[in-house]
Design a protein around this nucleic acid. Structure first.
Lengths: 237, 237
DNA sequence: GAGGGCAACTTGTATATACAAGTATGCAAG
DNA sequence: CTTGCATACTTGTATATACAAGTTGCCCTC
């Protein structure tokens, strides 16, 4: 709700996600919107382009903007969403257990993943995620200690992202994800309710701040039957 | 190379992907770029915002635009890329085999997936993809026949996307993907070199045209060890 | 009735301008 | 040496205008 164009964007995100605007509905034309929101056409267009980018509407030259079907309440949603946000959306009972939390020098692969010197200490966190009584996700996080100076079990049980953004006022900017499928390790078998499943889905996550410094590497290991990734992509710009 | 801002965008995509511009390099300021490209600042900003969206650069208020590390030559790349485009990028020897191609009424699930009436005939194509001697992907495509009137084995062996865009001049606009992991079916076991792997990665793909009509549903079934999905996402806009 | 063409609409691109806000630099005062 | 401030830079937002290009509907002509 910061700027004008974000206000317009959020206004329509709400209307579309809540179902007040059905798919195939035509939005008012850009000229009408400028009148409705007492602003300029370029500002309206910024909002509409954002909506189109994120899959809410489709713009057709000469015709107008039309509401698309959104079904982004699936698990897990594409993009950058924390476990806590996800669980809240699903409305399911969930639990995060912190298995270990230690400050160490980065070990082996971590040096490469975080692209730092071995002398730069890091936080290493291992957590399991339980939904509906089943332990489904094993998260192994690694944070640069110079960026996250203090970390407690309580914070890890809650939401690390929330702590970073609200308390430390660090702004998470973007992330790269790599999804692969592997055989479970001994650790996976011990910590997860694998239920006989012979593979795990591994999501490697590289998280960057606004100044493009890589400050977190996460390996998220999922039981395959509970894994689901949804992606929306436009072919050309 | 259509419009000015796309020309600037493509100019820097090339320079960044080819390595001529190293990560952490600072781009010229927006004012400088307007002079360099003989255009206006807003046009430059359109190009830069596109670069930022797609993970090529990071814009920092008060500082400038900086080149990010791009490693999008991984397999398969995120977004909407056809198998032929992918194979070309990887430079590997690849082969597409058409196992069946028939025009039928949509069966069972297809009616739901394509959201059409049972009287609307469709093309059903089953293909396998072989890379480096191993048959790794099983593709089951379903196209609306009113949109794709003619389809031959030759086209299916080449690239259906290319045929659609170049010959039919249909413009693919966006797609939704859902990635899950399942146990292989009898069909998977017969047609793929599963090599003992007990699961397959299933990518459901819903492809839409510019007028937002859903015209294709594809189920792409991958051998898990050869599957890889890369995603780039910005947290806020 | 069929077709062409004009007019009025839509979104897309490009330009110019103004001000806000974050960052870096250097200089002067303490 | 440190602090604070002014200044010149950077990107972000907002506005107004013009024209291009695709779509729709209407009217006129044949």
């Amino acid at each position: 709700m910061d700027t004008k164009y974000l206000a317009i964007y959020n206004h329509y995100v709400e209307k579309i996600e809540s179902g007040q605007l059905r798919p195939r509905t035509k939005l008012p034309s850009e000229h009408e919107l400028t009148r409705m929101f007492h602003t300029s056409r370029e500002t309206v267009r910024k909002a509409l382009n954002l909506l189109a980018q994120n899959g809410y509407i489709q713009k057709v030259k000469g015709k107008g903007s039309f509401v698309l079907q959104v079904d982004r309440f699936e698990f897990p949603v594409s993009g950058l969403v924390s476990f806590k946000e996800l669980a809240a959306r699903l409305g399911k009972e969930s639990r995060t257990r912190v298995l270990s939390l230690k400050a160490t020098a980065p070990e082996g692969e971590m040096v490469n993943h975080l692209n730092i010197s071995p002398s730069q200490p890091v936080w290493q966190v291992v957590r399991t995620r339980t939904i509906g009584g089943e332990t489904i996700i094993l998260d192994k996080d690694c944070f640069r200690q110079d960026i996250v100076p203090e970390l407690t079990v309580e914070i890890c049980e809650d939401s690390i992202y929330e702590y970073l953004e609200r308390i430390l006022e660090k702004k998470i900017s973007f992330a790269k994800k790599v999804i692969t499928v592997e055989e479970p390790t001994e650790e996976d078998r011990n910590l997860l309710d694998l239920d006989g499943y012979p593979m795990v889905v591994v999501v490697e996550n590289y998280v960057y701040l606004e100044d493009a410094t890589l400050f977190q590497y996460t390996e998220s290991r999922h039981r395959p039957d509970k894994f689901r990734f949804v992606d929306f992509a436009r072919r050309h710009q």
